[in-house]
Write a protein that binds this DNA or RNA. Structure first.
Lengths: 146, 146
DNA sequence: TTACAGAATTGTAATCATTACAATTTTAAT
DNA sequence: ATTAAAATTGTAATGATTACAATTCTGTAA
């Protein structure tokens, strides 16, 4: 779940690979996404990082995430209509959104979803593919009477 | 694209099949979704219907759509982080969101996406599956220099 | 028909995530 | 050390969605 402590240099290089110039704030946000696989919201990222970087502004978190998404260093999950969630781009996988507890859970599919790209008609320029499930997670499904 | 004029009775029955009691407002909203396959926002639905039903309140449109989604008579598309879009539930298909023009386009896959349900671990109670593509639609892709 | 209770609708006022924007600070190059 | 461009910050809008109380509608029973 938490891949302990990635060095500044590693994060810096990761950003550079995506043509993003490094900065204290950008490295902090990017590292947060690389270390946590919890699909955090802007507010969660801001609240956590603000403890270490008291001068951090929430606007900067917004700006940074927007940049990271544009450069393909992160992806925005829109499965939750209340807040955007963010994820560092990794291997192809799906997401399950529990409408009871609000958690987003990674779902790894054996064959992945990359294939679907081939099925699009000509002319489309695909930037991202997302497979979303909504429903009740096992924990909530067992609690809820049915 | 537009399946002309569905009778009140047909819409009423469609609602009844989903255990939704009919009313002028609910029939209007449901019919709008059945007749238009444009993935409208709340505002678009409200603005259109308001011409015919001047007393209609936007809150009612919100309430109704929420109910329709809960009862499985419609689905909410969260692909666009600016607004929720709505769609009457039909055959399984994917959606392409163009981040330039903001349009959502239906993508029909030969084999559908229903299979993915089987790949989930035990315990999940799946309510819906959505496959989203983001990128540039053919029109915008050709306009944008690359 | 009338009266009533519950459901549905309405309008207004909050809420709250996100964005706009102008001011300040930092960065990097000269 | 100077300066221009880029990044960051804080505050003030924006705008979608929700909460809520008041009103209207619906269906049933007297």
């Amino acid at each position: 779940m938490k891949q302990n402590k990635i060095s500044d240099k590693e994060v810096y290089d990761y950003l550079a690979n995506h043509e993003v110039k490094g900065s204290v704030q950008r490295i902090a946000v990017m590292r947060y996404l690389l270390e946590h696989h919890t699909h955090p919201t802007v507010d969660e990222i801001f609240t956590e990082l603000h403890e270490d970087i008291p001068t951090l502004s929430k606007t900067t978190v917004y700006n940074t995430l927007k940049l990271l998404v544009e450069q393909g260093a992160a992806m925005m999950l829109t499965i939750d209509d209340k807040n955007a969630h963010y994820d560092a781009v990794k291997e192809s996988h799906a997401h399950f959104f529990c409408y009871n507890c609000g958690k987003i859970i990674d779902i790894y599919n054996p064959e992945g979803i990359g294939d679907y790209e081939h099925k699009l008609p000509d002319g489309y320029k695909v930037q991202g593919i997302q497979l979303y499930y909504t429903g009740l997670c096992p924990k909530c499904a067992s609690k809820t009477k049915n």
